[in-house]
Design a protein around this nucleic acid. Structure first.
Lengths: 128, 128
DNA sequence: AAGTTTATACGAACGGTTTCGTAAAAACAA
DNA sequence: TTGTTTTTACGAAACCGTTCGTATAAACTT
């Protein structure tokens, strides 16, 4: 009822969410250190981004201690599902199958991965 | 050798590219009519977008006639592959398999589509 | 020829993201 | 206590994408 529609995270926000999803609740310092491994970014830039994410309710934070602890407020799976839907529409004209074929065809998958997919397909076929 | 790295098309530019890929070389008028079927957009907005795309070399154009004819300058497959790679990195931390599983699990695929994927997997397994 | 329609070109505004400088407060060290 | 480090907060600049108004020219209509 009182659920608000959360905005789609931007690319930078997604970078931060990945860190939070993988490491759990974290300080700005920690997130910034993680991001810094991948690219140049100033501490206050990361801080500002996370403050904006807080305003947007993409993260929640605990301000008890001096260094605030931030936590992702949206689920990884749900977020990926949302963004995937958008992406399929924009880039593959809505054809998820085309995307899957591209992803499969382009990516050198291991035997285990292919087996996983085959298992999933069988499961879908049974329940279909 | 003298190949330039083309910029990643934006969402709006992608809309236009879809029209050009599906209909071949087209006038601004035609593209705008197509876009207008899906959303509100002014003629000069479409024109401006296509002019910017021309500057970026995402399209080429023939200005012989009064109404200029625009044509996609980048291939659909290559573009989709590029954007997919980006997307997998940003949203799925580089795991294409995770993306495929999500796409498959979430999309109600027809028997034909599943067969297509199975055939592709077999082909990959043979050549692997 | 005069007026209407249709096209391109250009510039500017608007909104949003990203970046960072600077200030203020809190914690720590000497 | 005084100075250094660490943190949050705030504001502003720079940048980009999108949108559209207006000017101008070309082509068509009567």
């Amino acid at each position: 009822m009182s659920d608000k529609i959360l905005p789609k995270p931007t690319d930078s926000e997604l970078e931060i969410l990945q860190v939070l999803w993988e490491n759990g609740p974290s300080s700005v310092r920690f997130v910034n250190d993680e991001l810094s491994k991948r690219r140049d970014i100033g501490y206050t830039t990361t801080l500002k981004l996370m403050q904006i994410m807080h305003e947007k309710s993409l993260v929640v934070r605990n301000t008890d201690a001096r260094s605030h602890i931030y936590e992702a407020a949206i689920e990884r799976d749900a977020t990926q599902r949302n963004l995937l839907g958008n992406f399929v529409d924009n880039v593959f004209s809505g054809s998820a199958m085309n995307l899957v074929m591209q992803a499969l065809g382009n990516h050198k998958a291991s035997k285990e991965e292919l087996d996983q997919i085959k298992a999933l397909i069988e499961k879908i076929e049974k329940n279909g």
